[in-house]
Design a protein around this nucleic acid. Structure first.
Lengths: 358, 358
DNA sequence: GATCAACATGGTACGCATATCATGAAGCGA
DNA sequence: TCGCTTCATGATATGCGTACCATGTTGATC
């Protein structure tokens, strides 16, 4: 169906090689020949076949971006930032999402290696070095985005999310909160653990007992975690949540239990959706410089691919910002025992696995 | 660097063809041979090169999805739905976004044809048949998602967005509104025009004069359009907006002008963000069955690719739902002339191009 | 023991574009 | 006019995997 380079060559009475030259290095072809070839290209509506080109050149000019959860506005922001930076560098980007699942991550990485992408930007699920080694062993370049990799044999761009988590707690402590509970994601995901650790650090420094609930990075899980936490400890005055979905869920649970945010309960979080997307930015939270992270990662990757960067792995840590909005307020002074009453009828609701850490 | 099939063949003392068989049709290889080959594959960490395979098979098992604006939650929803459906059918999906720009659309389509995707799902910018013909001429299958194509030589899945727009207006009329103004996107984009037309239909049926403001599908534009509309006609009691970004902008403008939504001003819209993502679903609006649309489009495309569907183009129209939330309320009974006062100091603000239609 | 089928495996060419070397023509100076 | 460079173009081989046909082996059947 589709015309090939040889079809064009035949029609223009030249060799295939000359057609290739017209496309890739027009200067090197005589004007008359070039015109003939271009005419044939137009007439046959010839579109080059990158499969052949890539196979021969051993270069696809493609980089892959693997994010954990494409439904998260945070990931969307990463995707747009990476594609823009990549396009400027002359690369095409293909995406995948792992749904925070290591097996899916492995499958996706393999699919990308099969396509022989020149490089991969990965937001890894765990700090297991195996996926990274797999990519490197296959001869593709890789940059890790969003998480520090412990065995640092790979370029990485991330924020100090543990310290940022401490910062969130300190914000609450300054507002007079003492009963601060952490709601985070699954224990198998580094981000969830890191953010819980930062919370633990700050609580320990303040001489307070930490209370951490592990769940999922979803609204439903946030709702459930908040419900359980409030039932177990009705005197809680503030939640630190490990992402915006958990925060939304927690806010929902609070509202349903008759608690007002922030008057009765403060909620602070990570990875706020871009302010743009919301009618009123609401959650106080840590904002990561997504654009800069994505651009930096892309540039580092392109440097590796093009051989401009050799040698040791580079680890770039970018600063976060605490963005104070309406979801955090001074701790209420009175105890709220009526909460237990409201929670009563909801007891059969606890069907998620929830693990508490002392 | 990376091992090839022949490397594996040599190591297992078989022909390359046998390695290929082990990978694609393991049943046809004797167990002992198969084991030897698999051992060699593991030892060399061989990963097949799809470029070679695709080139030979003339099949990439890839479909491309081209949406207009990846930052829109509506598009994200399309992306996830299409990738899920495609994965189930054994296809990989690659994405692109056109930013509602015809040139960018053409570039992206060409890039996808260059990669020889088996098919393309396109949310077109305009109703120009050229992009569709380009793809068909290049031998790829295509399904148009979200917009009806006038010259129906192509499969399409969409909603009757014009009728839906009328439905929005009727909802407002039932609430007693008479001064209803349309805020829509650029005139060059079909969706913007279709939705304005539906508004026009309903206003005409009710014997009311339409007033349409064209702008962009962005929050900033929505804000600007609303500001201008309210200045020109302070007695406006309701806006119909052509997407959620315009709605958010309009709500912002209203708030800044001291108008409460919905008490003083109702706002209804299209393409609400998924309820999930918002703390409180707020906008009354038309909801399109995104999942079903995306699945249908994917299935139709796969059928074409696999030759199960031949002949005439199919045009599937799916029903929309009017989702009533808090942004629409009965029309206020008193006139509001103080609005002009509030608008006064903002006059120098009109730097977007805004076109009014009588 | 001969014949044939069924099966396992190999050899060769091909899909498309390009790197590399080779060839021919034109241009230039002496 | 000869010899040399410079430039435009072509022929061939290559990248990787697979379709297709061919060959050899095994085993069953009479």
């Amino acid at each position: 169906m589709a015309a090939t380079m040889r079809d064009v060559a035949r029609r223009a009475s030249v060799a295939a090689m000359t057609v290739s030259r017209v496309i890739n290095d027009p200067e090197s072809v005589a004007p008359a020949t070039k015109a003939r070839v271009e005419k044939a290209i137009a007439e046959l509506r010839y579109v080059p076949n990158m499969l052949g080109q890539d196979l021969r050149r051993k270069r696809t000019m493609t980089i892959a971006l693997l994010v954990s959860d494409i439904t998260n506005p945070f990931s969307i922001h990463q995707i747009t930032a990476v594609s823009d930076a990549a396009r400027r560098a002359g690369y095409t980007v293909i995406f995948g999402h792992t749904q925070s699942d290591s097996d899916e991550e492995a499958r996706q990485l393999r699919a990308m290696i099969e396509r022989r992408v020149d490089g991969i930007i990965l937001s890894p699920v765990t700090d297991d070095p195996a996926p990274v080694e797999f990519v490197q062993g296959a001869g593709s370049e890789i940059v890790v985005l969003g998480y520090p990799m412990p065995a640092s044999t790979v370029d990485a761009v991330h924020c100090d999310t543990r310290a940022a988590s401490s910062e969130l707690v300190e914000h609450l402590l300054l507002l007079g909160h003492r009963e601060v509970v952490m709601l985070t994601g699954p224990e198998r995901i580094v981000t969830a653990v890191e953010r819980a650790d930062g919370y633990g650090d700050a609580m320990a420094s303040a001489g307070l007992a930490p209370e951490i609930h592990y769940g999922d990075f979803t609204i439903a899980s946030g709702e459930e975690l908040a419900r359980v936490a409030l039932r177990q400890r009705p005197s809680t005055t503030a939640f630190v949540t490990a992402n915006n979905f958990i925060a939304i869920g927690a806010a929902r649970a609070a509202t349903q239990l008759g608690l007002r945010v922030p008057q009765d309960l403060s909620i602070v979080t990570f990875d706020n959706a871009r302010a743009d997307h919301m009618l009123d930015p609401f959650f106080t939270g840590i904002v990561q410089p997504v654009d800069r992270m994505a651009q930096t990662a892309t540039h580092m990757l392109v440097e590796r691919i093009e051989g401009d960067a050799r040698g040791r792995a580079r680890d770039v840590v970018l600063p976060t910002v605490l963005d104070v909005h309406g979801s955090s307020a001074p701790a209420p002074t009175t105890r709220r025992d009526e909460v237990t009453l409201l929670i009563g009828p909801e007891q059969g609701h606890n069907h998620n696995e929830v693990e508490g850490t002392p």
